[in-house]
Design a protein around this nucleic acid. Structure first.
Lengths: 199, 199, 199, 199
DNA sequence: GATGAATGAGTCTTCATTCAT
DNA sequence: CATGAATGAAGACTCATTCAT
C-alpha cells in the first residue's frame, strides 16, 4: 500500500528522529534496531530509509543538530563584554538551563560518541570543542584578571563541564528542587571551585 | 593474584574477562559479539560458555566486581576518625588515584548500566550508592561542623562525584600533569566548591 | 521510427527500455533494480510502472521485440530462390551483420532466458526456433542437393548458430578486423564446416 | 540445537557447493538466495557461513575449481608430440567429452562471469585464457605446417570454442546421439572449418 | 505522467547460544 | 575444556510494487 493520507515527508522524518532519539537514549544506538524505531511510530523499518540513508546518518544528525542548536543558543545569549565573574555565572546558568531541557540529546551526545564513524566523530568533537572553549576563555580571562584562582584553566574547564553536565543525570522536572534553585547551587559551587574572589 | 599451576580454567576465564572489558569499553556491550571476544584471545565463541553462562553474566561480573573492588579498596583506606576537611581530601585523592588506574572498568560501569538486566542493574546501583554515600557523609559532617558551606549535600555529592570521575575521560599516564599534580588541582577545586574554610 | 511531437510518453518508455537493456546486459536481470533503471534516466522507480506493468514485462518486451525485429529483418532479406551455397552465405553474412549491431539484445536474449516466466519463455523460444529453422532448411536443402556434406543437419544447425553468435562476445566496432573481413572469415569457416563443395 | 550427528564439515561444504551449483545454473547467481541453498540441503542459511565466508566466495569457488579441474584434466591428456591434425582431433574429443559431463559448471562459468568481483573475474579469465591457448597453439602449428587453412587463428580459436561449447546447451545423456557420434560429427565439422587437408 | 512515501517480503550476513565430539 | 557445526532469530538494508497527490 502507498502513502497514508496526509502524511508528509518532513513530518515523518521528524517522528523518526524523535523516536530514534528516545530509543537511543534509553537502550543505546547499537541495541536499537531500525524495526524498533519504525514500530515506535507505526512505520515499516524500510520506510525509514526514505528519510535517512543509514542508521549512522540518523545518529549523526541527532548529535550534530543538537550541538549546533546548543552553539546557536549560546551565541545568542553570550555577552562578551561581561566581566569574568558575571560571564561565568551566565555560562553556568545557561548550561544547566539548556541541558536539562534536552537530557536525551545530551545523554546520547556523550554516550554514543564511540558509535560515530570517524568523520562524524571529528565533526561532533569540533562542535563540542568550540562550545567548551567559551568556558575556557572565561576562566582564563578571570584568572588573568585575578578574580579567579585557577591553577590550570584546561583542567578546570573539564572539571566544571563535568560537574555541570552531571545535572542531566538526575534532574527531574518535578523534583525536589526548582531549576532556579539548582542553578543557584551550582553557581555557588563553581564559584568556589574556581576560587572566585568575593568582590 | 598469582594463579596456581594447573588452574588453567580460571586463567582462561580471566583472559575472557580482560578481553571483554577492553572490547566493551571500546565498542560498547551491544556492539561486541562473543565471537569477537573469543577471537581476541584465540578462542571459539562457544568456549566462552564454559566459563560464563551468558554474555549478560560477563557484563554483570565486570561491573559488580569492579564496584566491589572499589568498595573494598575504599574500606581499607578510609579513616572514620579523620576530621571532615582531611576526610574529604582523602576521598578526593583516593577516588582519582583509584579511578585512573581502571579507566575501562569505570567507563563501562557508567556506560553500560542500561544494558544490565533489571536485577543486575539494581545490584550495581546499590554498590554505587554505598560508595557515594561515603562522600555524602563526609560532606554532611563537614557542613554540620561548619567547616564546609554546602547548601545541599545531596546535590553537592553528585556534583563532586561528577567532577572527579570526569578525570578518567582525559587522564593519560604520560600526560602533561603527574597524578599527584592532578590530585592537588582537584583537592583545591573541590575544597572551593564545598566552601571549605581555610582553617 | 520517428516519434510524433508531443508523444512524450512513448519517448519515456523508450528511454526506460534502453536503460533496462543496457543494465540487464551489464549486470543481469535479477541484479538490476527498478530504482537503478529509473536513476539511469532520472526517474523515480514508481514512474516506470506508468509504462510497464512489471519488471518481467520489461524483460519480455526486450526479448520478444528483439526476436521479432530479427525475424522481420531476415524475412526482408532472405531470398528463397537462392541455391543452397548462396543461401548459406547470405545467412551467415546477415546473422553476423545483424547481431553485432545489437550485442546487448543478443546477449540478454541468451542470458536471461531462465529469468522469463514460463509463458514468456515459450514465446521467445518459438521465435528463436523459427529463425534457426531458416538455417536448418538451408542446410537440409544443400545436403539433399549434395552441395553440402552434413551428417546431421540438426546438430549442424546448432553448431553453426553457436559459432556465429559467438562473434558478439568479442566484436568491437573499432577492432582489428572490419565487419566485412569478419564475415569473410566466417563464410570460409562455415563453408568448410558443412563440407561445401567448391563449385 | 547443535550439530546433527555424523555430519562433518567437509561433507556439508560439499553439499552446499553441489546445491549452489545446481541452483545457480538453473536460476542464476543473483536470483538464488542463501536461504534457498540451505533449504535444498536441510540447513539454515546462516550455517552456510561456517563453510563459505560469503556468497561470492561460493561462486568464485565453483568457477575457479571447475576451470582448474578442466586444465588439470587437459594437461593429463594432451600430447604435445602429436601432429596438428591429431592434436586438433584430440582437443575436440576431449573438450566435448569433458564439458558434457559438467554442464552446470560450464554453464555458470560462462553465465556468471559478470557476477564475479573484479579480482575473481581476472583469476577465472586467466584460467580460461590458458585453456583456450592450447587450441590456438594447435591451430597456429597446423596453419604453419600447411595442414590447416586458417586465415586468422585468433578468430578461428574463438569460433571453434564457441561451436564446441554449444554442445552443452542441448546434450542429453539419453539423447538421440551417443557421445561418440557427437564427437565424430564435431570432428568432421571442425576439420572442415579449419580447412584441414585430407591427408 | 511523475513524485515521494509507503508496504511487506526479501536480501546477505551476524548473533547468542547449544552440543556432539 | 575446546572445537566446529548447527539453530533460529535478528541485524541493516533493498526490493518490486502501490497509490495519493
Amino acid at each position: 500500500m502507498a502513502r497514508k493520507v496526509g502524511s508528509i515527508g518532513a513530518e515523518t522524518a521528524d517522528r523518526v528522529r524523535l523516536a530514534a532519539l528516545s530509543l537511543f537514549a534509553r537502550y543505546g544506538y547499537a541495541a536499537v534496531s531500525m524495526r524498533q524505531i519504525g514500530r515506535e511510530i507505526g512505520l515499516q523499518a524500510g520506510a525509514i530509509y526514505n528519510h535517512f540513508p543509514t542508521k549512522q546518518h540518523l545518529l549523526r544528525g541527532l548529535m550534530v543538530e543538537h550541538m549546533e542548536r546548543l552553539l546557536t543558543a549560546w551565541e545568542a545569549e553570550r555577552d562578551d563584554n561581561l566581566p569574568p565573574r558575571e560571564a561565568l555565572v551566565a555560562f553556568v546558568r545557561f548550561h544547566i538551563r539548556y541541558h536539562v531541557k534536552c537530557g536525551e540529546e545530551v545523554f546520547i551526545s556523550y554516550m554514543e560518541l564511540r558509535n560515530l564513524e570517524e568523520q562524524n566523530f571529528v565533526e561532533v568533537e569540533e562542535l563540542r570543542r568550540r562550545y567548551e572553549h567559551s568556558l575556557r576563555s572565561i576562566l582564563e580571562a578571570g584568572t588573568e584578571a585575578r578574580v579567579f584562582t585557577v591553577s590550570d584553566p584546561r583542567v578546570a574547564t573539564m572539571a566544571v563541564i563535568a560537574m555541570l553536565t552531571g545535572v542531566t543525570n538526575w534532574y527531574r522536572t518535578d523534583g525536589r528542587l526548582s531549576l532556579d534553585e539548582i542553578e543557584e547551587l551550582y553557581v555557588r559551587m563553581i564559584s568556589g571551585a574556581v576560587g572566585m574572589k568575593e568582590n
